[in-house]
Design a protein around this nucleic acid. Structure first.
Lengths: 256, 256
DNA sequence: CCACTGATTCAAGCTACTCGAACAAAACAC
DNA sequence: GTGTTTTGTTCGAGTAGCTTGAATCAGTGG
């Protein structure tokens, strides 16, 4: 979704703190001055923010250089324990990113929507709105459609009723009948495509990870620029690669 | 490193936000009302905080219940990667788990406490409270004591002053003098034992990974049921095994 | 030695965070 | 069914406390 979950009056202080974390995630390390330039506020303010975060071990200070603290793992673990799939999928996703050099996502279904639980980027992978923890409409992207198609019909209907079929690009499927046709096609071939339905110029393939009842517990997708993901690469090579991986994960999940 | 991080004028807003995360870590899930009772502030304030955090995927809202979001993993991974030790230790820890069939942990020191940066479980390994990212008192477990004993005396004193010696089981060392004796013993033999000092019925051995100055940069431990970890296995075999591994890691860390 | 860059402190001003009241919606009692 | 209670949510107003810029240290290089 990237529907900005517009909160009424967000607390600016919290958002700025998150901005610091984001910057450190991207740059690994930063000084007060460097962060000040990024945040566009007084240096003393940045200083106070970073000291406060460091005092709580969210940041670690070393010789005036700040980094993210490992305490985040503490919180992350709690959140991750909801998804057994994570441990199984992570190494495969990393491998796929290495191999395809594109962006790989692993997503699960939760309350009729998708959650990106892990992503890895290959050498040439594109940056989109997507990020770990983001929640999406299932019908808007490849992994989501792969999941949707491998749910019981009743659950699909329920999901559509509950969330509707909001559009995102002109290509997004917003018609119920059209979506059902698409679902049938996905079921036949075993995986889903995304032709600029979530982001203009972006193509993707998604394959479902299924349990012993052939019901989806998640999905993995490869996405990249439409110019690169086309022809036999998109139609044959990537699907074959993906199907092998999701099969393996599915088996490992069934026999721990 | 990691001296008392007494910050001059901490930003209250940030500290309260962290308080929310802490509460959710402990309770897994909470509503606005529940959190308000905990935070002791206006309900509208809590509401605004949680909405802001949720808008940034740090929290996930479901039917008025909030949980920690997996976005924390995003940050946690970055933080873990800064410990070069992780890459070096992970394969050895996996091997040890395979070989001993018990639970293996790798921990490092941060801010006078230990952080479990990686764990692997063997065929028969036990489940305890411990998990990746978990923060512990150094004096309460084998790996922690191994680290503690291989720090400069000044830093040991500082750590004890800052965190005290809280108990956990009746066996936990809570007396300063007794701890210093234990430290001497650990220094003599080169590794530490844990006799039900962290969990009743659990024994463990921990050996420090040291740098060229013989200062600990981390530790590895083997833990299992007291009934299985005893006698020569506990006293001789496991320590020998551990020492070989930590030596190797130490050397690899020194000569990358 | 001085100039320069960076972190850190502090008083003062004003932003924006907190509060409480009011509203809507749901759950529950009777 | 109606009233009662308990949720989450919105909004105006007031002031706590966040932001700021200048001043002070600390460390580097010329």
């Amino acid at each position: 979704m990237a529907i900005p979950p517009a909160v009424n009056r967000p607390v600016g202080t919290i958002e700025r703190a998150i901005e610091i974390m984001e910057y450190l995630k991207a740059h690994d390390t930063a000084t007060v001055s460097e962060m000040t330039a990024h945040l566009d506020c007084a240096k003393s303010t940045t200083h106070r923010y970073m000291k406060t975060l460091a005092a709580n071990s969210l940041l670690v200070e070393d010789d005036n250089e700040y980094q993210l603290g490992i305490r985040f793992l503490d919180y992350g673990e709690v959140a991750r324990n909801k998804y057994r799939l994570y441990d199984e999928a992570k190494p495969r996703v990393d491998e796929l990113a290495e191999e395809t050099e594109e962006k790989i996502w692993c997503a699960v279904e939760e309350h009729g929507r998708s959650v990106h639980i892990y992503g890895a980027q290959g050498k040439h992978s594109v940056q989109t709105y997507a990020r770990v923890g983001h929640r999406n409409y299932l019908h808007q992207h490849a992994a989501g459609k792969a999941i949707l198609a491998h749910l019981p019909d009743s659950q699909i209907t329920e999901t559509i009723d509950r969330h509707g079929l909001p559009g995102r690009t002109p290509q997004t499927i917003t018609d119920r009948d059209e979506l059902w046709e698409e679902i049938e096609a996905i079921r036949d071939r075993g995986y889903a495509f995304n032709f600029q339905e979530s982001v203009e110029g972006l193509h993707a393939v998604g394959a479902p990870i299924t349990d012993e009842n052939d019901t989806a517990i998640g999905a993995i997708s490869v996405s990249g620029p439409a110019s690169r993901l086309e022809g036999t690469i998109l139609r044959d090579e990537l699907p074959t690669l993906l199907l092998g991986v999701v099969n393996e994960i599915g088996i490992n999940m069934a026999h721990p």
